[in-house]
Amino acid sequence: MSTTAEHSDHTDVEHGHGHDDHAAHGEHGQHGQHGQHEEHGHKPTSYYVKVALFLGVLTALETATYWVVEELGAFLVPSLLIMMAIKFVVVASLFMHLKWDNKIFSWLFYSGLILAVLVYAAFLATFRFFTPT
């Protein structure tokens, strides 16, 4: 909803759909025929299905830990957290196209995320959440 037609032309390097950006990633076809918008990072259906299968397997693994809590012992929490992080990053960068989009989007989103993690970790730390009592 930019104000004027001019602005859509003037927007500079940071602009979200920076055209240079996806020119640099020529591996995903299609662009050119529908103008500049939207063509970045659209993969064939099979690609997304594979990603979703991978995510599904991870979810299954996560759920599986429920029955082997005892066996995993100290490994349980770290392995769950790692799987969670992988799923998060996969959805964010592949489904949400962060991998192919302008870097400023990643920057904006992850700055919020990292800030949240740091601040709330410090917050819980002051409650001695991480120190076993």
Partner: peptide
Amino acid sequence: PSVADDSDYDPPAEGGG
């Protein structure tokens, strides 16, 4: 629409959503 119909109005730059 944020700007009333106009044939020579370009699609909005960002989102327009």
